[in-house]
Design a protein around this nucleic acid. Structure first.
Lengths: 241, 241
DNA sequence: TCAAGTTGTCTATGATAATAGACAACTTGA
DNA sequence: TCAAGTTGTCTATTATCATAGACAACTTGA
């Protein structure tokens, strides 16, 4: 560590990487742009060039930038704008950005409802729930990991249905539910744990947006409650009103 | 670093600290609870006891836990629930949790509107803006740093008024605006920079929730646009509908 | 063609992170 | 009172972080 560091627990190269990434996310380096040279970046962060190289290496590994020997380092990808409205679907949001939405089932299982889950779904503690863990992509970039819980009685075989349907909207449609909306949403941020980091192809220690939400049908009856972890660096939530 | 680490750029002790803090935030260790012994934590994280000690030391420094020699380490503080509605005020939110809201002016200045700011406020690029930077507390805990911009023509002397009023609601009331609401809100997360970390009494590298918002009057005319950085570990946003 | 500027790779060195072990100081409950 | 379990402090060792310098390989534009 350098002298200016008072022992933050975050390596210098990582802070440089974060800085560059924020500049990219903020649009100061749009996609396709050439970044300043490594020496120049090193000077502006008051850091050794090797430290900058390590920072750039991690960004390159994640596909955010691409280094071209003899020429420079160039910006690759943008950030997904994610509106939080009552009736927006993941697939629509991604599609609106001109990217291809994809869902992938990680695991499906059954488990009894904890007190919190039961309360969210309007069921009794211990009621059988289907638990579906899925990974969602925009093109080939993983955006979020979501864990969904539904009543196993009302939605029998939910795991199998989801793995075929590949989206929650399609799953609910399979059970005759054509319309649903967001009942509640809670957002906070955390640091990615090992499992999320691996699935989201995210470096350990990167921030994730943690969204707890419950979807309800037209009558307000809870259908499904979820906890999703979004790679913070890849999305910006937009709240209406 | 240990072998299981592939070079995440985040020190082990910090990941342990994050883990413990998440457990506290998730309510697995409610306020007043005694944490497992250092040796036990070390085993569960597969880490040396000294590493755990360092993690606990930082949590203690931030007032999250308190170590008692010979007895154990105990949990101190909870997390603020922050609803995102059209008409919620910081002071009401904090007050609702039984805590004392406080605002502190960091700096006030005047500057011409950038293109983005002008657009948000419905003004022309270059129009004079008052810029107010403030720090907001719940009791003695800093919650967020906010930078607000208002039209300097419509709100002359805004900085002085704010420093007396100590809240945006009171400032607007001073100019005869009794009612206002949230026009737009955008949320993402980032890593605290040095300045935010210092003001929020946050370790460098901790996540912050970045909220860009614009408040409008009853007619929908933009009044003030803000960027606030919240210590993610101290709040949970609640989104309606 | 050539010079200037770029990224890629090597060696070396000091500071810090993480491990390991031992023991002191203290609290708690039997 | 005492034993078991806790936090506090010390020494020592190894791996990684960050710096520093030098040079190769390559691209670009004059």
């Amino acid at each position: 560590m350098s002298m200016q560091d008072a022992g933050s627990g975050v390596a210098l190269w990582r802070r440089v990487a974060d800085g560059i990434e924020r500049d990219i996310a903020a649009g100061r380096f749009p996609a396709g742009t050439r970044l300043p040279g490594e020496t120049e970046i090193a000077e502006s962060y008051r850091v050794n060039r090797h430290t900058v190289r390590r920072a750039l290496a991690t960004l390159a590994e994640r596909g955010l930038v691409r280094a071209e020997r003899g020429s420079g380092t160039y910006v690759e990808a943008p950030r997904l704008s994610y509106p939080l409205r009552s009736r927006t679907r993941f697939s629509e949001i991604v599609g609106a950005g001109g990217r291809e939405p994809r869902g992938q089932l990680i695991a499906a299982s059954e488990e009894p409802a904890t007190r919190e889950l039961a309360q969210a779904l309007g069921l009794k503690t211990g009621a059988p729930l289907a638990r579906i863990e899925a990974l969602r992509f925009a093109d080939k970039t993983p955006i979020c990991v979501s864990t969904s819980w539904l009543s196993a009685e009302r939605f029998p075989d939910a795991g199998r249905v989801f793995s075929a349907a590949r989206s929650m909207t399609a799953l609910l449609a399979h059970y005759g539910i054509r319309d649903y909306r967001r009942g509640s949403t809670r957002i906070t941020a955390a640091i990615a744990d090992a499992s999320d980091a691996a699935r989201l192809d995210l470096m350990l220690g990167r921030p994730v947006l943690v969204v707890d939400s419950t979807d309800v049908d037209a009558d307000g009856t809870p259908l499904v409650t979820k906890r999703a972890r979004f790679a913070a660096e890849r999305v910006t939530f937009e709240v209406e009103g």
